[in-house]
Design a binder for these strands. Sequence first.
DNA 1: TAAGCGATGTATCGAGCCGATACATCGACG
DNA 2: CGTCGATGTATCGGCTCGATACATCGCTTA
Lengths: 213, 213
Amino acid sequence: MLEFAILGLLHESPMHGYELRKELAAKLGSIRAAISYGTLYPTLRRLQSAGYITEAGETPPTTPEVPALTSKRGRVVYKITAEGKERFADLIAQAGPETYDDAGFGIHFAFFARTDQATRLRILEGRRRKVEERRESMRDVLARAGERLDAYTLELQRHGLDACEREVRWLEELIVNERSGRQPSQEGREASQGETTRDGTGETSPHVQDERP
Amino acid sequence: MLEFAILGLLHESPMHGYELRKELAAKLGSIRAAISYGTLYPTLRRLQSAGYITEAGETPPTTPEVPALTSKRGRVVYKITAEGKERFADLIAQAGPETYDDAGFGIHFAFFARTDQATRLRILEGRRRKVEERRESMRDVLARAGERLDAYTLELQRHGLDACEREVRWLEELIVNERSGRQPSQEGREASQGETTRDGTGETSPHVQDERP
DNA sequence: TAAGCGATGTATCGAGCCGATACATCGACG
DNA sequence: CGTCGATGTATCGGCTCGATACATCGCTTA
């Protein structure tokens, strides 16, 4: 999973570990917490030994003289290889079942800009199917377990069900957009380019989504 | 994390592995997928060797005669011990930072019926704080990264931000309820069936929190 | 009748991932 | 002039998952 994200990021430009973590946090902030270094560095080494990425020598240090007095470690910049790009394309193409769980879907979605439309559609529909199943199962629990579960558990289920329904609607919208060849969020929303909402803290009209007059 | 959930469930009645998994799936269906056996069985053994649970001999098999011809494995029923109940209470009392991430909060919330009001409030507020932080960070990304990120990534952020805002509102509501001593979801909503609370076993009146050992 | 199938049930293994921890450099701020 | 936070690389123990294996039971169906 993380392999995919790293390849996707390095696809844009070479980076070192710390930078990767930050970019990842920004791009996937809505899905998962920042990735742990205990995951990142081993994965980088794994990818490197698999030949998907290589070390790209740091930009020439300002002083070529006095090179290694204290054997300074310095940052290690990685860049993607041709095999890495191929691997990334493969990972996009084969959408396994893990592509549809929360984390997997989020990561794939984050790299939709590098994914062809047919695959985008396939992934969106796969995700929708999965969320619908989850929703149905939760409806069942709520319907036939009014007495078995306590009030707090029920409240939790309700909140979860609500989130599911909302995500299905969101996916529906994206699918419709995708089919008609549009980019997301171009049609109804005010994009950020203008000033329109400069403050960002206040109102945040919750995600307009349908029927803008 | 799972330790907490298992102790919580066994607190209600003895169960065997398969049953635990199903109950867990029902109770936590809105938080996480069904738990893996590769997690469950090692955890059960860990809890057992720690003395928090013990094997409770299966209800006398229908045939006491012909006892063990094929050395049949049969199900292993576990029940919680006094130390286990103590441990569960401890885990409730000490709310670490992991209590506020998605999974941790969900599990704690699912057992709010066995949690005293002060702790409930503390956990709800801790969770709210965490979600608010997440929300702010996402607002930042959206505000100052209009061009750095592609349309799909932006859409993902928007959806995530929306979910955060919604959860904060949900938490606010729960906190208000909690402060006024009400049970969740009694006040505004149209319940699914007519008879308010017919509850059979748990009854979960607001300050239950412990039963006879 | 037997063959197959899905639910029930226990169990292990490799690999991914996390949190804690350690260590080192650098600019800023008091 | 010290120390604090950001930058930066790295390891370790332990939890968790998905895949896999195996066995029993009751039901349908050829």
